[in-house]
Amino acid sequence: MRTLLGRRTAALAVTAAVTAAGLTGTALADAPSGAWTATEITGLTAPALYGVTAPDRGHAWAVGTQSSSSAPLILSYRHGAWAPQAAPAGTAPQLVDVASRGPSNVWAVGQGGGDATAKSLHWNGRAWKAVAYPRQLPMAVSVDSRGKAWSIGSNTDGSGAAVFRRTGGTWTDEGLSLASGTLLDALAARTPEDVWAGGMTSSGDGLWHYDGTAWTQMDIPGDWPHWVLQVVALSPEDVWFYTIPQDPLFSGPTLVHWDGAAFTVTKTPSPYEQVRAYAQDVGFLGDIASDGRGGVWLQDSRTAYYRHFDGTTWTSVPRPANDLGGWPQVYDLAQVGRTASVWGVGPGAGDRLLIDRFR
């Protein structure tokens, strides 16, 4: 689920005074079995990836932008290798998210301007098709258990945030009534009767649930409203959220779990060591993904580690070594089908791009 433009320019509601919490006093579990490795892709121009999806071991797609954000970028993984795919004419130049329900049903959404009027794409197993989008700034896309695509988007002026479902060959507004100025940036449509939408609002927590009939705004425990950045929905009793409590001192992000009846809030290991007046890019907080075993992977885009949470304790697992002169941010993580493998993508450097994988 990724992050660009509308998400990138969203300001935190408070000035963020960020301190380094590190792992002091945090119990560490044994590292999961396996290792993170990186695949290098060359031959691109100023590439960046913002979304990745993997319906099974043999197929994956990653989307983003290239050529100084002037052209869309689609990479397909098959037969053990990544390769570029051509985007249809008119595709928005900055693809921000991608989701799938099998190798023949993949959806991507993008942001752009000028002649790039097509904001969403569909892959049917043979070719990509450009599809018009009802808002100027699509933010995320998800595909439910029946193969129907859901998406969230808004307008460039921040108005019109809404949830849409692809029905009858068009994007249909699913009736989530939101206050003006509400930001939606996270979406997980597990089934048509179990959909989560996350974001930030001026009243309460930025989290809503749809049961197939109506939307309910949810209340996460805590003294401050939560800005919900990411959602991973595995079952009605197993949903994970990556959030920012909007307290005046910006205590840092949290990992929140829903068990079907109540929320549990866990502080994440925080790498932040500087004062930030604004979150210029929501991607600076990274992403989460299921580990396929009841826990969660987290990459916080500020350290040389992937964080693993087994439901009780944290583990820090080293990222793959590289010679880029730093650690590329990780904008999106995706579990590979129902396995314990995970893909991680982010921006590149020059003509080089690294895609991480745990297995």
Rank of each mutant, 00 (worst) to 15 (best):
Q280P: 08
T312S: 14
L137W: 08
W36I: 11
T191D: 09
D323C: 08
T268H: 07
K119W: 06
V231D: 00
L333K: 00
P55T: 04
A16P: 08
N155M: 07
G348P: 05
A81S: 15
D173K: 06
Y133M: 07
R319T: 15
T254A: 14
A349K: 12
Q335G: 04
A92P: 09
A60H: 07
A29I: 05
D332V: 08
A161V: 07
G292F: 04
G350T: 14
S68P: 09
R78T: 11
L207Q: 04
L23C: 13
S145M: 03
D56S: 01
N105E: 12
A149P: 00
V52M: 07
F284P: 02
A87F: 03
K119Q: 12
G80L: 12
G350A: 09
A349C: 07
T24E: 15
D97L: 10
R57V: 12
W314Y: 06
A13I: 11
T26A: 15
D30P: 10
F250I: 05
Q246S: 14
A16G: 13
A16I: 08
P88E: 12
V336M: 06
D219E: 11
A81W: 13
G112A: 07
E193P: 02
G198T: 04
F250R: 09
S270D: 15
A188R: 00
Y133F: 15
